[in-house]
């Protein structure tokens, strides 16, 4: 234990300090927007486990958040006030499910993996639609139950949920940082850099990557649980492909493997984007241009330090590049 704080840890502390300050002073109804963005940010963090550590693209984050939300709401309707048991069970189940699903997919190449995980998301949506009697189908479900913590009572209110989202995010960030610095974390990074070399060093790639996938699934599911009990109404559209794509988009903008930057990207860009309301129908175009600009800005920043010679040598789009 040293007292010297690393740059990453300092950034994280600054980020959370700013967010917490914002959370203290915003009026309730403004906090709703921040909380909606925090839900997305949690999904970005979840994806960071799969992509930033394991180097595996996933478009299943929306589906995982949905599984968390629906499972928790349905379980709560049978066992109200059992949140202390229900929530961990749901999150663990999501962990197990994500880990199990990812195992056979581990060996798929980038494009195929994207397709397969996208399929998981679409299957989730369609199953929800088909099982209308349990899930309410596309009309959605009203969430009557609240999260209940013995001693604290029912959790409700914007500020409570703001700090819930924030603490889940802090836990997730700590887990991410701890995992990254651990032996399995380094093994995961090795898988990301060169899967073949990693497995030839005796790393059990499938097991490790299903761990990172599982953790990602669990964080997403937790985000879904909070989102459901906070918003009070869930429908399949909230957990559609759009959520998965957005999570991937923001993670790439911030840089996979970075802890704070993607989260900051979500909070800043989403706030800017929801401020574009006055544009009306031109908003889609403006969002597209803004995201393109953000992607290119990150790219240009990353190539700046490279001397001209190396650029010239790399003017080919080869099959595989480091993230």
């Amino acid at each position: 234990m040293t007292l010297a704080i690393t740059k990453g840890a300092r950034n994280a502390l600054v980020f959370f300090a700013i967010l917490a300050t914002v959370g203290f002073f915003l009026p309730d109804y403004r906090l709703l927007v921040v909380n909606q963005h925090l839900f997305l940010a949690l999904n970005v963090l979840a994806l960071n486990f799969c992509l930033g550590l394991g180097g595996q693209i996933s478009l299943a984050q929306g589906g995982m958040a949905g599984i968390g939300a629906y499972a928790s709401v349905i379980a709560h309707s049978h066992f109200p006030q059992a949140s202390v048991i229900v929530v961990p069970v749901v999150v663990l189940a999501a962990f197990g499910f994500a880990a199990a699903v990812s195992r056979p997919m581990e060996r798929l190449g980038e494009g195929f993996l994207a397709m397969a995980t996208l399929g998981v998301s679409l299957i989730f949506t369609n199953v929800v639609l088909t099982m209308g009697e349990v899930t309410g189908g596309s009309a959605g479900l009203m969430v009557d139950s609240r999260l209940y913590v013995p001693g604290l009572g029912e959790l409700s209110g914007d500020r409570t949920f703001f700090f819930l989202f924030l603490s889940v995010m802090a836990c997730g960030c700590w887990m991410f940082a701890a995992l990254k610095d651990s032996r399995p974390g380094r093994a995961l990074l090795a898988c990301k850099d060169d899967p073949l070399a990693a497995s030839s060093c005796g790393i059990d790639r499938a097991a490790l990557r299903s761990l990172s996938f599982g953790l990602g699934g669990a964080v997403s599911a937790m985000a879904g649980v909070l989102h459901a009990h906070y918003g009070g109404f869930i429908n399949p559209e909230q957990f559609s492909l759009e959520l998965s794509l957005k999570a991937l988009l923001f993670l790439v903008i911030g840089g996979p493997g970075n802890l704070v930057r993607p989260l900051a990207a979500v909070m800043i860009l989403e706030t800017v984007m929801s401020g574009m309301q006055f544009l009306g129908e031109a908003r889609t175009l403006a969002h597209g241009l803004l995201l393109t600009a953000a992607l290119l800005a990150g790219y240009w920043r990353s190539i700046r330090p490279i001397p001209m010679l190396t650029i010239a040598a790399r003017s080919v789009a080869p099959g595989r590049k480091p993230m």
Partner: peptide, 21 residues
Amino acid sequence: IHDTESNPDVALRLARQLVEA
């Protein structure tokens, strides 16, 4: 008048703005 963007999240946001602010 506010524009809900056909989006339930935004609609809720604006409804709260209407009532609370």
